[in-house]
Design a protein around this nucleic acid. Sequence first.
DNA 1: TCAATCACG
DNA 2: ACGTACGTGATTGAA
Length: 297
Amino acid sequence: MDKLLNTYVKALPNEINSDTGRIHTKFNQAVTSTGRLSSNNPNLQNIPIRTENGQKIRKAFTPRNKDFILMCADYSQIELRIIASLSGDVNMIDAFNKDEDIHTSTAARIFNVPHNKVSREQRSNAKTVNFGIIYGVSAFGLSQQTNLNRKESKILIDNYYENYPTLKEYMSKQIDFARENGYVETLMGRRRYLTNINSQNGMIRSADERNAVNAPIQGSAADIIKIAMKNIFNIFNQKQFKSKMILQVHDELVFDVHLSELDKIKKVVKNSMESAVTLDIPLKVDIGTGKNWLEAH
DNA sequence: TCAATCACG
DNA sequence: ACGTACGTGATTGAA
């Protein structure tokens, strides 16, 4: 509660630029180890959304005036789509090609139940496993994050790899590559050097093994949204749109859109993001609009 | 000055 | 037997 009050409610009004009447963040191009942007002074990539009070803060972000509307464009499950495509795992590729809900689809597999019999709890646990896999979670880690014990967690992870066997192979190959070469790379060839991948210390080594898997996923997502941003920026200039791209939050772009341009902007943004690169499965972008950042999301 | 906590993806 | 999920930034309070 104090967190929201001190970090956002009290601090952000002081960040309003007196000339523009708006808050201007800094986007850093060369801070992160994976290729993501970071944002500071103030950080606008961690504006609250998960809690009720947090949502009130998000509502404070509005278009410049009544002729404009906020528009959010989010990549749907981009990291899982990337790992599906890079690994070539047919089961996961299949789920995305059919445009299935990936967490429900995973739940059906790892709990061995029909698609339409997946419970809320099963989907929620499958979601935790899906994200955990990208980070290299252990059975212990999974048991901390869920209501499952260690044994149940281990069974789920084992089931996961049985159902997505090529994903497991891909992860091992990434680790082997890192051991050989001392780095891993993203879709566009950005490298992350892993100096501890051959360490004698098991704890230090396994941290780099997790990085060998995670960095290309997170980093490729960063590559993709950057390509989309460049293309969008160029089209906006070319077409002399009044609308502006105003924020990037890792898998989301935020726009201040002139109402007269809304239909065109939607098409340009969705198309630019979905076709930034071609993978073995489609990229999917969800678009929302509203009179503030919460509504647009 | 630094680790812990918590905001986001 | 061991420790145990990736990437950030802002704030707080102990050392």
